[in-house]
Computed example of a mutant assay.
Amino acid sequence: MAASSPSRKPTLPAMSPPPCEVAAPDTTAPGAPEAAIDAGGATVTGRGEAGATVTVRDAAGIVIASVVVAADGSFTTPLSPAQAVAAASPVTQTDAAGNVSAAVQIASPTSPRR
């Protein structure tokens, strides 16, 4: 009787799982925008995070302007209504994930004295 060779199990190459991307949610608020109001109290200009939405509120907290920051980081928006009385207006920016920055206060010009 011929000697039989030991039984061998075939070995398979080690398999790695396919690569996958894991994206963590964006929970970081953008920095406060840089903003300034013109002398007439009608326009706010500044710089922010490209694609973020800049919101300007009046002293009572009512939204008086909203604009998307351009790809170069700049923005300009008219105020409605113009802010002719000296008052602080908070300006924030909100990124695509909905994170809101800290507010920066811009001072509206003082109305002319008579």
Results as ranks from 00 to 15, higher is better:
A39S: 15
V85R: 11
A35H: 07
D72G: 08
Q93P: 09
R57Q: 07
V67M: 10
A96R: 12
A88D: 13
G48H: 04
N99E: 07
Q93Y: 00
A32S: 10
P90I: 15
T77N: 02
G61K: 05
E49V: 12
A71Q: 12
V63P: 15
T43R: 08
G98C: 02
G61T: 01
V85Q: 14
A70N: 11
V85F: 15
G48Y: 04
A39R: 10
G98A: 05
V54Y: 02
A96F: 11
T76H: 12
T43E: 15
D72A: 00
V100S: 09
A84S: 11
A82L: 09
A60K: 15
A86L: 10
E34A: 14
V100A: 12
S80C: 10
I37A: 08
E34Y: 07
A96L: 13
A39N: 15
D72E: 08
A42E: 14
A65D: 06
I62S: 14
I62C: 10
A84W: 14
A59Q: 08
S74I: 00
T55V: 13
G40C: 13
G51Q: 09
F75P: 04
Q93K: 00
P78E: 10
S66I: 04
V91T: 00
V44G: 04
G48F: 01
V69T: 06
T43H: 04
A86M: 09
I62M: 10
V63F: 04
A96V: 11
S80H: 10
D38K: 03
V44L: 05
I64Q: 06
A87C: 11
S66M: 07
A65K: 01
G40K: 15
D95V: 01
I62G: 11
Q93W: 02
D58T: 01
S66G: 11
A36R: 11
D58A: 03
L79M: 05
G48R: 03
R57M: 05
V56D: 08
A65H: 03
T55A: 09
A65M: 05
T55H: 03
S74M: 09
T77C: 03
Q93S: 01
A42K: 14
E34D: 13
A60M: 10
T45C: 04
G73P: 01
P81M: 00
A32Y: 07
V54F: 03
A71V: 11
T76V: 13
V67Y: 08
S74T: 13
S89F: 12
V44Y: 00
A35D: 09
A96I: 10
T77V: 12
A96S: 13
V54E: 02
T53N: 12
S74K: 15
G46W: 00
L79F: 02
A97I: 02
S80W: 05
G51R: 05
T53W: 14
V67R: 15
D95I: 01
A42C: 13
V69W: 02
A52K: 02
G41F: 04
A97Q: 08
A96C: 08
G40V: 14
G98I: 00
V63C: 06
T53G: 06
A84C: 09
P78C: 06
A97P: 02
F75C: 00
I64C: 03
G98D: 08
G98E: 09
G73D: 07
G51P: 04
A88N: 12
I37K: 01
R57W: 00
T43G: 06
G41V: 08
A97M: 00
A86N: 04
E34Q: 12
S66E: 15
T53E: 12
T94E: 13
G31C: 11
A42G: 15
A87E: 10
P81W: 01
P33R: 01
T92M: 05
